[in-house]
């Protein structure tokens, strides 16, 4: 796996008021890679993911997606904040899947998937509907197209959420603990979809506690703690022979 760098993070800092949550994150995600982030609660994993599509503004450092600065334009050595429209345009290419699904409850599965293509890309409804049906079939929900989220199981909802993100044809997918809110017997169906996605060559950043998935599907893994990357490497390497004490302590608890 050695595509061009899809995400590049240089000394990214992020504070909420006086609390510094990210204290200089350096990492690089290559195109086509499955990049796993693990770490204890509160270590800043979600915050970092949210910085990548500018749901949070970083305070210092540089963050690039596909070679472009996230949320800013650089002229000379001056940074200009992007307008809302430009930020929205950047986000189109980045899909995000949330821990709590965040499906639109007043829309059916198909409508959830169609919403952004129609509203943002101006796709015709018939075309969007076709695309939605195709994507829902791909995540194994061909027969639930017209169900409302409340009529679906957690695993099914999360698969709809993945289809919804894919409908924008992103070049990068962010997963924030996509299986943490699921009953254990439903975790597998979501991981299967993600595995298939990885095999199709999608670039994915996955925050997860599923070490089995990281080991099997992951190409790289970082261990974050206290707002810094403590350790990184190939998942099998890091998970089998953690070098840092903090990594060892964490892994001994979750494995």
């Amino acid at each position: 796996m050695s595509g061009h760098p899809m995400v590049k993070s240089e000394q990214v800092h992020k504070s909420f008021g006086p609390i510094e949550v990210l204290k200089g994150i350096d990492l690089e995600v290559r195109a086509g890679e499955v990049f796993c982030i693990v770490g204890p609660s509160g270590s800043g994993k979600s915050t970092f993911l949210r910085c990548i599509n500018h749901l949070e503004k970083i305070n210092a450092g540089r963050l690039y997606v596909d070679g472009h600065l996230v949320g800013y334009r650089q002229r000379g050595n001056k940074l200009y904040e992007m307008r809302e429209r430009e930020v929205a345009t950047q986000r189109r290419d980045i899909g995000m899947v949330f821990q709590r699904f965040n499906l639109f409850p007043h829309m059916t599965a198909a409508e959830n998937v169609m919403e952004a293509p129609v509203q943002v890309k101006g796709l015709r409804r018939a075309e969007a509907r076709e695309r939605a049906e195709r994507l829902l079939a791909r995540v194994g929900l061909a027969d639930r197209v017209d169900s409302y989220p409340s009529q679906l199981s957690g695993g099914q909802q999360q698969r709809v959420a993945i289809a919804r993100a894919l409908a924008m044809e992103p070049k990068l997918m962010l997963f924030d603990e996509p299986t943490s809110a699921l009953d254990p017997e439903l975790v597998g169906e979501v991981l299967d979809v993600m595995r298939a996605l990885a095999e199709d060559g999608m670039t994915m950043i996955v925050v997860t506690h599923e070490m089995g998935f990281a080991r099997e599907v992951g190409d790289s893994l970082v261990f974050m703690d206290g707002g810094v990357v403590v350790e990184s490497g190939h998942p099998r390497e890091v998970l089998a022979n953690p070098r840092h004490e903090r990594t060892k302590a964490f892994l001994s608890k979750v494995l």
């Binding site: 599509n53 749901l55 929205a88 345009t89 986000r91 189109r92 980045i94 899909g95 995000m96 949330f98 965040n102 499906l103 639109f104 919403e115 952004a116 509203q119 943002v120 919804r164 993100a165 924008m168």
Partner: peptide, 8 residues
Amino acid sequence: EAAHALGM
């Protein structure tokens, strides 16, 4: 957040 993440 979900809507913004989709580029709306």
